[in-house]
Design a protein around this nucleic acid. Structure first.
Length: 103
DNA sequence: TTTCTGACACTAG
DNA sequence: CCTAGTGCCAGAA
């Protein structure tokens, strides 16, 4: 019956759901963490994801900046979680980056 | 099957 | 510090 073939989308979304509140991961990190997927793939999946339960705002670029299409909303949500952000709207990865080992 | 496109990453200038 | 160019994977036309 091959229920659902554990698609790439699910692998990635599952990983994003595990990111604790107040922490963030880069697209590249999520991809690597979710089965060696490319950062591009992670972005594509999130753009297509319609699941409201996915904390997509906890995924940022490798330099701490946010994706253009959702930048404003993302910064707002991250600040609400007390994630350190500088005046250029870039997340302080040194302090908020989550390695996936513990909360 | 080929080509284009994108919520990315990395290196060089 | 910032901008350009190149490589990357996968889906859509």
């Amino acid at each position: 019956m091959a229920a659902r073939p554990a698609t790439v989308e699910e692998e990635i979304l599952a990983c994003v759901r595990r990111i604790p509140r107040g922490r963030v991961m880069t697209y590249g990190d999520v991809g690597e963490y979710a089965g060696g997927r490319a950062a591009r793939t992670v972005g594509r999946v999130l753009s297509a994801a319609s699941d409201p339960g996915v904390p997509w705002h906890r995924v940022v670029r490798a330099d701490g900046s946010c994706a253009e299409p959702v930048r404003a909303a993302q910064v707002e949500r991250l600040r609400a979680e007390e994630v350190p952000i500088d005046r250029h709207n870039r997340v302080d990865l040194a302090a908020a980056r989550w390695n996936g080992r513990r909360r």
